[in-house]
Amino acid sequence: MTEKISKAITLSRFPLIFLVIVLHSYFAEIDYSQYPVFSNITCLLSFVVTRVAVPLFFAISGYLFFNKVETMNLKLYKSKLKKRVKSLLVPYILWNILFVLAYFFIIKFQLVPVHTDGKTVYDYSLTDFLWSLYNTKISAGVETPFYGIVYGTGSPIAYHMWFVRDLMVASILSPIIYFLVSNRVARFIYLPVIIMVWAYAIPFLGDVGYYLSSVTFFSLGAWANVNKINIEKIESCNRILVIYVLAVGIELYLYNTKSLSSLYHNVTILLGLLALVSILLRLSGKVSVPKMLSDSTFFVYGGHLMFILLTVKLLQRYIPHNEGYLIIAYLCAPIMVYTFLVGCWVVLKRIFPRLAEWLNGGR
C-alpha cells in the first residue's frame, strides 16, 4: 500500500461516516409528492450519492485485511481474527446491548413509535435477547435460526450493525476469498461473477442479501490488494467523474418517472465507488481531517442510528410541513447528530476512557 493510498483511506473515514448518517436521515413520514424539490434533494442524497458509502467501507476493509499478505496460512488467519475480536466483535456486542436498553426506555416512555415484527424487547425471553444480537427476525419468530444465520436477511437489534456483523462473516470467510482472488484462474472469473450476481440479486432498498453485499465488496478490496492493482490510476480518470454525474442525473429522472430498476441503481453505485475513490486520491495529501473526527468514526457509526431516527421523527412531528422548512431540517439533521456524537465521544474519552475505547473498537 502506497503512502498516497494510505492517506486516502485515512481521509475517507470522515466523509464516509457522514454519508452513512445522511443515508439514514430520510423523512419516512412525509408525502413526497407534495414537495418536488425536497423529494429530489432527498433522493439525490439519501438514495443515490450516499449508497456508495457502505460498499466502499467493505472494499477498504477487504483491502486492509490482505495488506502485505503474501500467503494465507492458519497462523495468519488466527492472528487476523484475534485482532477483529477487539476491533469488531466487542464494540458490536456493546452497541447492541446499548440499543436493547434504549428500546426499553423509548417504549416505556413512548417517545416515538417503534415498529417491530410482532414483539418488543418487553416480550423477549433470554433466548430472544441473545438472537437479537444477531438477527431480530429470529427473536420475533419470523425466521428460523438456520435461515437467519445462513442467508443473513435480517439485522441485529442495532439495525445498522448488520455492517459489522457481515464484515465479521467476510473475515471468517477470508481464506476462501483469498483463494478466489489469488488463484491464477479463479481471480479472472470470481470477481466479475460475484459483482454481476450482486448487481442482479440485490433489490433496490431491499432487506435481503446482506452477506452478498459484504462478501462482494470485501472481495473487491481483497482482489485489488492481492493482485497489486495500481489504484492510483483512477485519480487521473476524469471520465469516470463525468459518467457518474450523468448516471446520477439519469437515476433522478428514472426515480421521478417511477421506472428506476434495481440493476441501474446498482450500476450507479459501482460508478460512484470509482468516482469517490478518484476524488479521495485527488484530495489525499492536500486536505486533512482533524484527528478527533477520524479517531471517533466507529463511535459515531455505533451511535448514529438511534439519534438520527429520533431526530428525524421529532422534526417530522414538530416542524411546519412546507418545502423550505423540510429541506433545512433534512440538511441540518445529520450535522446536528454528527456534532453531538463527536462531542459525546470526546467527553466519554475523558471520563471513561476504557469504555470509549471499547465502543470505538480499540481505536
Rank of each mutant, 00 (worst) to 15 (best):
Leu81Ala: 11
Val48Ala: 14
Pro15Gln: 09
Asn67Cys: 12
Leu76Gln: 10
Ser79Glu: 13
Thr50Pro: 06
His24Arg: 02
Tyr92Gln: 10
Gly62Ser: 03
Phe57Tyr: 12
Leu94Val: 03
Tyr77Arg: 08
Ile41Ala: 05
Phe27Gln: 10
Val37Pro: 12
Leu88Asp: 13
Ser46Gln: 03
Asn67Met: 15
Phe47Ile: 09
Thr42Leu: 07
Phe27His: 02
Arg84Gly: 11
Phe57Glu: 14
Val37Asp: 14
Leu56Met: 04
Leu89Tyr: 13
Leu56Ala: 00
Lys82Thr: 07
Ile97Met: 15
Gly62Thr: 05
Lys78Trp: 05
Tyr26Val: 03
Ile41Asp: 15
Val20Ile: 06
Gln34Gly: 11
Phe38Cys: 05
Lys80Gly: 09
Val48Phe: 15
Phe57Ala: 12
Ser12Leu: 03
Lys68Ile: 01
Val49His: 08
Ser33Gly: 15
Ala28Leu: 14
Val54His: 10
Ser61Ile: 00
Lys83Tyr: 10
Leu81Ser: 10
Met72Pro: 01
Phe47Tyr: 15
Ser33Val: 00
Ser25Lys: 00
Val48Met: 13
Lys82Glu: 10
Val85His: 11
Ser12Thr: 06
Ile97Asp: 14
Pro91Asn: 11
Leu16Thr: 04
Phe58Gln: 14
Asn67Thr: 11
Pro91Leu: 01
Leu23Asp: 12
Arg51Tyr: 09
Phe38Tyr: 07
Arg84His: 08
Asn96Cys: 02
Thr71Pro: 09
Arg51Asp: 02
Thr71His: 15
Leu64Pro: 07
Leu76Asn: 03
Pro36Ala: 00
Arg13Glu: 09
Pro91Ser: 07
His24Tyr: 04
Leu45Pro: 02
His24Asp: 03
Lys83Trp: 13
Ser39Trp: 06
Leu74Pro: 03
Phe38Val: 03
Asn40His: 11
Met72Ser: 00
Gly62Arg: 08
Leu81Cys: 07
Thr50Arg: 10
Val22Tyr: 04
Lys80Trp: 04
Arg84Val: 01
Glu70Asp: 11
Ser46Leu: 04
Asn67Gln: 15
Ile30Trp: 07
Ser87Arg: 12
Leu16Gln: 06
Lys82Gly: 03
Lys83Asn: 11
Val48Tyr: 15
Ser79Trp: 05
Lys80Cys: 07
